[in-house]
Design a protein around this nucleic acid. Structure first.
Length: 200
DNA sequence: GCCAACGTTGGC
DNA sequence: GCCAACGTTGGC
């Protein structure tokens, strides 16, 4: 299962589900005072090109985010522990997110978003019909979590991964050193540098 | 708790 | 569509 969020279309019925999902704030954030402030910047990957999983299209691009109601979406479908832990334990309202397009013709950073809701259970894991169903995650003991993000900006031109790799300033980016992590920390300096590239 | 086998990610 | 890198699973 890809550790990226799934489609906007599937998201519509998922949203209905969330209203009846009582477990929204059930997890507690604890013992984070030492490192919670280290990162306020993240990078999250989504697949902007169509890919069918269990009969449903899991594509989700920066444009798809923009087109959501309030330009806001849950970031479901992450099925990797490290990425989950970041969402569950670290991401806070107001944090900045680089929106990355992966597994596509031109992989790269497409724009920015902000965190508008902190971690709550990824209920898509509970639905056997859903592309990201996980029978090991139960509503009373959720295994997977997600946050909500809101569109902030679309770069005039996507910054391709190939270009990012060329900058000395970005040589230590998690994106470059650890290609497969789908939710990852970004340093403030990296974020600022990328914003300037994106707005050129 | 090691680690081989397996499955997925994601650039190319 | 290939396949290297790497995360997860499960036998022992």
């Amino acid at each position: 299962m890809p550790p990226v969020r799934r489609s906007a279309r599937v998201n519509e019925f998922a949203k209905k589900a969330t209203r009846s999902c009582k477990s929204g704030e059930s997890h507690t954030t604890t013992a984070l005072s030492n490192d919670a402030k280290i990162y306020g910047y993240w990078l999250m990957k989504a697949e902007p090109e169509s890919r069918i999983v269990k009969g449903k299209d899991v594509k989700f691009s920066i444009d798809d985010l923009y087109e959501m109601k309030d330009s806001t979406s849950c970031w479901d479908g992450v099925r990797n522990y490290e990425a989950r832990n970041i969402m569950r334990d670290k991401m806070k309202i107001g944090d900045k997110v680089l929106f990355y397009h992966s597994n596509c013709k031109t992989p790269g950073i497409a724009g920015t978003a902000t965190v508008v809701r902190e971690a709550y259970p990824d209920y898509t894991a509970f639905d056997p019909e859903h592309p990201y169903y996980d029978p090991k995650s139960k509503a009373d003991v959720p295994k997977w979590f997600m946050v909500d993000v809101k569109f902030e900006s679309k770069f005039s031109n996507i910054i391709p991964l190939s270009a990012l790799k060329g900058y000395q300033e970005l040589k230590d980016m998690v994106l470059i050193k650890r290609g497969r992590l789908s939710v990852q920390p970004v340093k403030a300096g990296e974020y600022d540098f990328i914003l300037k590239l994106g707005n050129k």
